[in-house]
Amino acid sequence: MPMKIAKATFATLTILFLVAPLVAILPLAFTSSVILTYPIPSWSLRWFEELFFADAWRRAIINSLIIGTGTTLLATALGTAASLGLRNRLIFLRGTMRTLFLLPMVVPAVVLGVGLQVLLAGFGLTNSYLGVIIAHTVVAVPFVVVSVTGALAGIDERVELAAQSLGASPPTVFRRVTLPLALPGVLSGTVLAFATSLDEVVLTLFVAGPNQRTLARQMFSSIRENISPAIAAAAFLFIAATILIGFIVVLSRSILARRR
């Protein structure tokens, strides 16, 4: 019995430790004060107004959406293609190749940032949307690869062989069998890619110009310039969006699962 209590206490403390920062910041989104501190004098939505109507913040939200969407599309396409390629047993140095695709997950973002800045400058892509999307894609692809590879591993190869024998050409097999079966994994990869882009600061600092300032980047700079509760409102927006996306994924996965 004391063991049980100890376990429960430890679990509670761990959870508290994980959510404490959120608990600390979220109420401040609704403060009427002009500085980001407790106590909260009275409740207000003025910082959300600021977020949506102040030019810098609104621009940042739109940038995040543009770059996030671009990154999601590019990373999902590339990551899915890579996962499909890595399935081929005959591929040269398959293990090494897979590691290469996952490398951006572990390489320090600062190193990647410097490298990307040099590289993108060579192509004249610094301070451009495309540049930022490419940079975000580099760090988002591994998440897609992991997620889609997992989904593909769950497909019985004989199902695809059966489709072939029944008269489906390789592109048709992909369209009618492989892709629908891997869809939950692709979907998760898509969400992870979007989340990665939304959250990315370090690479953005290196490659984005003032016109590509994203929401995360805007939060980062405004916390140094003025400690406005607009940051808390932005954080609230982040969390709400994340929960919403997570909910959509769970929902669509369960719909897909019910279909089989």
Partner: peptide, 28 residues
């Protein structure tokens, strides 16, 4: 290629399309 050989294959693992109904499997 396999898809032009016009041979029906039955596997030990059945290899049905899990995302299609029985009727759609046979219609494929």
């Amino acid at each position: 290629p396999t898809h032009r050989r016009d041979m029906g294959v039955v596997f030990q693992s059945y290899a049905l399309f899990p995302h299609m109904s029985v009727g759609d499997n046979i219609a494929f």
